[in-house]
Nucleic acid binder design. Structure first.
Lengths: 198, 198
DNA sequence: TGACAAATAGAACGACCGTTCGTATTCTCG
DNA sequence: CGAGAATACGAACGGTCGTTCTATTTGTCA
């Protein structure tokens, strides 16, 4: 890896931390330059524009998500265990970095949900990829007989997302210590109506 | 109502529209001045600072929410109908303004969830007020025999919030036309496990 | 090692930011 | 109507924004 790529990677780590702390809107050239110790123009040269920096940071976050959540979850046995693994890791993946950070992808989704452009497209692509990965895991679980054959997969994905978002809301904004327990209970209830009748 | 209050109210309407469109971070003195046709300094005089403007806009949104969602829902009969009314109105309350606007309170919650300050405190206060109103409606529904006596009220509120957030995500970011139907189905499933055994 | 490319720094730009101040206009009410 | 207060304007402030140049340093490789 040449010097350039190394620096770029270091910048993206700092950018991801910044975006996780205070949102993508706070990701300015100036603050990121002082955070990395580079000059504004030196940093700028690695990206053609602020928008490209935002996109690169977004993709960096998405890749980090895949590494932290999806790839390890795929090591869990096929079927329900894998679905559970995705949920568990998804809930707590932000804690793999410093404490108190939020999910940068969730923050970006709301910041850009009505601002058309390349950034928005990358966010949409990430969530569609993510949701279809969860759909596949659910399909496998149905095939394995762990879940009801007539389960509405997309509906289940919708509800899992809701549990995750409610968890972020209660844990970060409202600082409720029982947020994780509530999320687990909601997920358990979701599975209880998704499992085959005995 | 004096001239001052009238102008201030007009400014807050425009500010709420702006915040709903592009987030509270986009709520700058300059853009709001040109949006209202006032001069920057003329607008600024109505609020002591940008932070006070943000807080006033936030409170304006919260009051609008109460008028649009909670107050009409209280006209529904006590018990399950009232709970349903809150949910239905909450889902679609943003459509009372121009099409495509998001929930400004949800956007604010994520923008400020890790930025301590007065703005954050106002957001927290709104959601706690809101969630406890939903808790009261659920308690009444239990008392009326519409819901199970041993229902975990706070858990139910947690899950309702999740459905709302998932709806916003699917409707606004992913532009899925079935978002409302998914939300209805999730709510129906929630109620089905909350109703008393026959 | 020396030449050439890659990477970084520094200064400057026009634009916009929140904010202040002095002045002019407009409303309110005796 | 006319005095005084309330309201709005215009210009300017220091600061930061993204971006563009030109140097200068640094790394790479024949």
């Amino acid at each position: 890896m040449g010097k350039g790529e190394e620096t770029r990677s270091m910048i993206l780590d700092a950018a991801l931390a910044q975006a996780s702390e205070a949102g993508f809107e706070s990701l300015t050239i100036g603050t990121l330059a002082s955070r990395t110790g580079l000059s504004k123009s030196g940093l700028f040269a690695h990206f053609g524009s602020r928008e490209d920096l935002q996109i690169a940071t977004l993709d960096h976050a998405a890749q980090r998500f895949i590494e932290t959540v999806m790839t390890p979850a795929m090591l869990a046995p096929r079927g329900l265990p894998r679905v559970r693994a995705i949920f568990e890791r998804w809930l707590t993946w932000t804690q793999c970095r410093e404490i108190g950070f939020g999910c940068p992808l969730h923050a970006a989704a709301i910041e850009f949900d009505d601002r058309p452009g390349k950034v928005r497209e990358h966010i949409v692509a990430h969530f569609e990829r993510l949701q279809s990965a969860l759909e596949r895991a659910l399909t496998i679980a149905i095939g394995a007989g762990d879940l009801r054959a007539d389960l509405d997969i997309q509906q289940t994905v919708f509800e899992v997302l809701g549990i995750i978002f409610a968890y972020y809301h209660n844990a970060r904004l409202l600082q409720r210590p029982d947020a994780a327990r509530r999320a687990e209970a909601a997920f358990a209830r979701l599975l209880s109506t998704a499992q085959p009748a005995i």
